[in-house]
């Protein structure tokens, strides 16, 4: 029962994050919203594992956390350097600061 209520709460949070991802005026709003969608999905995954008596879902959750971080890192790196895997340019770094 407790897990069911928690899942409902996470679903509500997920819905709010989706609203922000769709409405978000700037790309950063969307990016943060997607990041929290990922986090909520991981919470949902963990709670669902406990709800159906399969706590080993937690391991999958850890993998998701890593993927979520990689995705956000990729997008942020793209923002910073305009490209992925680009050479670091000290002058441009200075200009952005």
């Amino acid at each position: 029962m407790m897990f069911a209520v928690a899942i409902l709460a996470v679903l509500a949070a997920l819905a709010l994050a989706v609203v922000r991802a769709l409405a978000g005026p700037t790309a950063f709003d969307r990016l943060l919203a997607v990041n929290s969608i990922g986090t909520s999905a991981i919470m949902l995954l963990a709670l669902f594992g406990f709800l159906t008596d399969r706590p080993e879902f937690l391991d999958i959750g850890i993998t998701y956390v890593l993927l979520n971080m990689i995705g956000t890192l990729a997008v942020l790196k793209f923002f910073r350097y305009g490209a992925l895997g680009h050479a670091q340019d000290p002058e441009r770094d200075e200009a952005l600061r």
Binding site: L14, V18, A21, L22, G24, A27, R30, L31, A33, V34, I37, G38, A41, L44, L45, F48, F57, I60, Y64, N68, G71, V75
Partner: peptide, 22 residues
């Protein structure tokens, strides 16, 4: 905005993965 599309596609994949797990 294509950048927003890329970001939203990531959100889509995460939700789809949750559906698959359920």
């Amino acid at each position: 905005n294509l950048f927003a599309v890329v970001v939203l596609t990531g959100a889509y994949s995460f939700l789809m993965a949750s559906v698959m797990i359920v």
